[in-house]
Design a protein around this nucleic acid. Structure first.
Lengths: 177, 177
DNA sequence: ACCAGTAGTCAAGATGCTTGACTATGTATC
DNA sequence: GATACATAGTCAAGCATCTTGACTACTGGT
C-alpha cells in the first residue's frame, strides 16, 4: 500500500529543488485539525451504527438543542440558506432522526424535534466526543488543551465584533443581496 | 412510537425557556474557527480579483509547492480521490492558474506547475494570510496566539501516530477503502 | 378586506466529491 | 523480446450538498 515511497527519487529529481514544506499558518492548521476531528467523529458515529451520519448533517444537528426548535430559528442560526436547511431536514426526517410538527403558535411555522433515534444518536455523540477529547488531552496535556479551547472560544467571541466592524466600515459587501 | 407527540406543551415550554445551548466542545470550536478563517480568506481573495478562488481549490493548492509537483504526488498528499484531484486541476487549468506538462522522466506522469497568474494569487494569498493573522494576534495577544498555533501543530504531529495505532491495533471500521 | 412581511416548499442547477471502467506507460520476469 | 502486473492519468456516471428563483400559505397591521 505504501510502496510508492520507493519511487520518490524520480520525483525529487524532476523538481527544480526539493519539495517545499506544507503550509503552516493558522488557517491551514485550523482546517487540518477540524477535518481530522470531523473524520474521526463521523467514523466513530457510523461505527456505532448511525449510518445516516454525515458531516453536513452533523453541522446542522449541532444547532438544534435537545428540546427542538422552530425551523425558522434553525435557518437563522445556521449559516446556510433555508433551502439547504430544508433539504438536510428532509433527509434527517426520512432517516427517522428528526420529526417536523406544525407549530401550534404559528400556522406558518414548523417545529423540529428529535425522535428517540435522534436522541440516541446525540447520546452516542456525546460519549464519542468525550473519548476524542480525552485523546486530545492525552496528546497535549491538560494545560495546553485548556489553552487551546480558551483561545478558540476567544476567537469565537470576538468574531461578531470583527464582523460588525467590517460591515460598518467597508462597503464591499452590501447586505441588500 | 410517537409518544413524544403528546408532549407538545413541553416542547413549547422548552422553547420559551431558551434552553438553547450551542455546542462547546473541541470539534465544534475547531469547525467554527476553521470556517470563519476560510470564509474571511476566500472573501479577501475574491475581493483582490481572484474570482476563481474557492475553498475546495484552496485546499488543493495548499498542497502544491511553488515549484510544482507530480500530479501523482499531489494525489498522494491530498486526502481525496485522484478523480477529485483531477477535476479540481481541470478547473484550475481552465482558469489559467495552473499548467499540466508531461513529465520528461515518466511518460505516464504529469507535472503540475503554477502559471504567473497562479503565482500572483499565491503572493496575494500570503499577504492576506498575514493580515488575518495579525487580526487574530490582536484579538488573542501574542502569547495566546502562539499557544494556539503550538497546540494545533502538536495535534497535527501526533495525528499520524494516532492513526498508525488505530489501524495497527483496532479492526473496528471497515469503511470502504 | 387588503397587503406587506414571514415561514416554508418546489424546482433547477452548480460544485465538489465518489466509484467504476478504461487507456497508456513503466517495470519486472522469464 | 514477450508477457504480466503495477502505476499515472482520464472519462463517465452518480450522489450529496448547497445555491438562486419562483411559488404557496399564513400572520399581523391598517
Amino acid at each position: 500500500m505504501l510502496d510508492y515511497v520507493s519511487g520518490e527519487k524520480n520525483l525529487v529529481k524532476s523538481l527544480d529543488e526539493k519539495s517545499e514544506t506544507l503550509p503552516d499558518h493558522i488557517g491551514w492548521r485550523l482546517w487540518q485539525a477540524s477535518r481530522a476531528w470531523q473524520t474521526e467523529f463521523a467514523a466513530a458515529m457510523r461505527a456505532a451504527g448511525h449510518h445516516w451520519f454525515t458531516e453536513a448533517r452533523a453541522g446542522l444537528l449541532g444547532h438544534i438543542p435537545r428540546g427542538g426548535m422552530r425551523q425558522s430559528a434553525l435557518i437563522e442560526r445556521s449559516a446556510i440558506s433555508k433551502q439547504a436547511v430544508q433539504q438536510l431536514l428532509d433527509g434527517l426526517e426520512t432517516e427517522g432522526v428528526l420529526q417536523r410538527l406544525p407549530d401550534p403558535q404559528d400556522g406558518r411555522g414548523k417545529l423540529v424535534r428529535y425522535t428517540r433515534k435522534g436522541l440516541d444518536a446525540l447520546r452516542d455523540g456525546d460519549r464519542i466526543k468525550l473519548q476524542i477529547e480525552r485523546s486530545y488531552v492525552a496528546r497535549l496535556g491538560h494545560e495546553r488543551f485548556a489553552a487551546l479551547m480558551g483561545a478558540l472560544r476567544s476567537l469565537d467571541r470576538t468574531q461578531a465584533d470583527a464582523l460588525d466592524k467590517a460591515s460598518g466600515v467597508q462597503d464591499d459587501a452590501p447586505e441588500s443581496k
